[in-house]
Amino acid sequence: MAARQKKLIALAALLCLSFASHASAQVARRVVSLVPNVTEILFAVGAGAQVVGISSYDDFPPETKSLPRVGALLDPDTERIFSLRPDLVIVYGSQGELESQFTRTGIRVYPYRHGGIDDVLQAIRDVARLTGHTADGDRVVRGMQKQFAAIRQRVGGRPRPKTMVVIGRDAGELRGVYASGGVGFLHEVLEIAGGDDVFADQKREAVQPSNETMIVRAPQVIIEVHAGDPPASQVLEKERAAWNQLASVPAVRNNRVHLLYGGYLLAAGPRLGQAADTLARVLHPEAFK
């Protein structure tokens, strides 16, 4: 009995494998992406027309507006995804259950893992290859590498200010502050843009510094990055003023607290070069005169 069961399982596994290898030989024609920055990558490598479904949070490029939404990290709508008859589904690396659900039925899955810039570039190459746009992918990657190199060169040799990149904070006060830690694409973008991360020693993507920690780390520049559109100017002024109580922090004293708005600043995708450029201009305005 047990032996027979084992045989059956082996057979099933073999079937799956053959399906998978069969599929990988082909270019994906119908792609569902549950990961917003990968959706952006798909469009950047010219696979936009092959995208048939996207996550609930996608908003870039504008072409995504008309596409069907199939849930996100916590609430993927499996039925909806199946009904779109995809041959490639892009999921988060942590969605293991979902991944095996699709592979069992012979649908190819690309699990995206969050990481540094190299991971982003690799994701671009992978996604381009899977959708039959290998050359476009390489072009996008080379373009980004060129952008990064140009920015490095531009800010090279200049003093690198100690910088804190803030990715979250309660409105109007210095509470619930989240900052980029010494790992991940934001940290790397900051290094490219010519800033020294004050939390470079914290080997995590995000840290929650207390007021004391921020005073002690004494960043020379504070950059807040927000995904949305900039608010009205008086709100902007109030939010900037929230930092004034850390009077001894050089960034505050020297009026170097910058509030930046734009989805591209936080999207690990093809626009990271643009993000690095924005940061570099904030950190080294004199280099761009």
Partner: peptide, 29 residues
């Protein structure tokens, strides 16, 4: 706290508050 501060420095009025890290840590944090 996580950092050592000097009370004498924190209450030293001769240093402007904005320059006095010890005072900032003591009074703000």
């Amino acid at each position: 706290g996580s950092t050592h501060i000097s009370l004498a420095r924190a209450f030293d009025r001769s240093v402007p508050f904005a320059d006095n890290v010890d005072a900032q840590i003591f009074f703000v944090a």
